[in-house]
Write a protein that binds this DNA or RNA. Structure first.
Lengths: 204, 204
DNA sequence: GTCTATAAAATGATAGAC
DNA sequence: GTCTATCATTTTATAGAC
């Protein structure tokens, strides 16, 4: 009975997928909280509730584990981007993405951009699935940036590259953390303030 | 002959100061390049050209050493702020400080803002000299921000706190690193672009 | 104060039983 | 695949001679 056999295998695979997703949830949270260098595999295992050796049966190294987490995050971001109302203007689409990212960041599940100072950067560059998702997202954003420049809602003189990097950087702006630590503003207010300074600056 | 004795002591102290300054130069550079967590004491000692044990005769721990380096950086920043031409408008003073910081950052001697994710953050908060310098700088910047809001060159509706944190954050913006890595822009161009997006946003 | 040598702790990764 | 126990390495910090 091949169907039963297939079904059983599929079920096992679903269990596996489920477990690995739980692991990535933890990694995502810890990466957001402490960053790659300060996150330890002991910590991850403890948070998931399994032994460290078991963790290594799922992911062969800390780098691969983190890359998998970042890749899933990229996929989620792309999903959000593609589910935006078509009626939105290109500029509003860009703002919506940044808004979602800052909200997620404040919620504690958006890791900081792997800066050039982190060990994880090269691991990500060597991880094709991540590069692939990053390229896809960059393409979408690039299209919107171009369109926004064409209709005059974004500066035409600013290089697209600068706008793109700025959007990525503001999505995990440490200013959000400092404002939250200050305690004077609600999460919603923080998001609005950051969106404003990001797109309109501080002079207006 | 007390004068000779005093002179000798003073000379020794000058030598000590000189050596410790050389150490802090190295720490500053390494903090900018790798950050606190990835910088090792072996590395610092090797770069300075002394044994690690000697390093610990000067600074009792990695935290204290890094805090001393960051404190000196704060002092330098205050010096730059105080030596700005009085004729400059408050807004131009703020821009000048950010400009100087980004230039220094691109030059490789401006550490990233100790984010909430780094171990160094609490060490700095527990280091009175650093807090003292930080307060002084914050006071100066706060005065300029208020003045710029009063004369209408900075948004009056934006909380001063938000402007202050944004200025601190943009002074070591990772966008600068990414643009530099891209290789399409000179350092001068990068500085101009970041100043523009920081103060005027991306819509104008 | 500078050195060599080493302690002490943390941490990425693995062995081997079940 | 999960566990316990352990290895190997890195790294902060110190001991002790000179």
């Amino acid at each position: 009975m091949p169907s039963a056999h297939t079904k059983k295998l599929s079920f096992k695979q679903q269990q596996l997928q489920f477990r690995e997703n739980a692991i990535l949830d933890t990694v995502n949270k810890l990466l957001a909280k402490k960053g790659f260098d300060l996150m330890t595999m002991d910590e991850v295992a403890a948070d998931v509730g399994i032994a460290k050796a078991s963790l290594y049966k799922h992911f062969e190294s800390k780098e691969v584990l983190s890359a998998a987490s970042m890749t899933r995050l990229m996929e989620q971001t792309i999903t959000v981007a593609l589910s935006l109302p078509q009626a939105l203007s290109p500029l509003d689409k860009l703002k919506s993405i940044v808004r979602w990212a800052i909200q997620t960041h404040l919620g504690g599940t958006m890791p900081l951009l792997p800066s050039t100072r982190s060990t994880i950067q090269q691991a990500l560059l060597a991880h094709p699935p991540y590069i692939d998702k990053l390229s896809t997202l960059t393409e979408h954003l690039g299209t919107w940036i171009q369109a926004a420049q064409d209709n005059g809602t974004l500066s035409k003189t600013l290089p697209g590259e600068v706008i793109l990097y700025t959007i990525f950087a503001r999505s995990c702006d440490p200013v959000a953390d400092f404002l939250k630590m200050g305690g004077a503003f609600s999460d919603t207010e923080i998001v609005d303030l950051l969106i404003q300074t990001c797109f309109d600056g501080m002079t207006g």
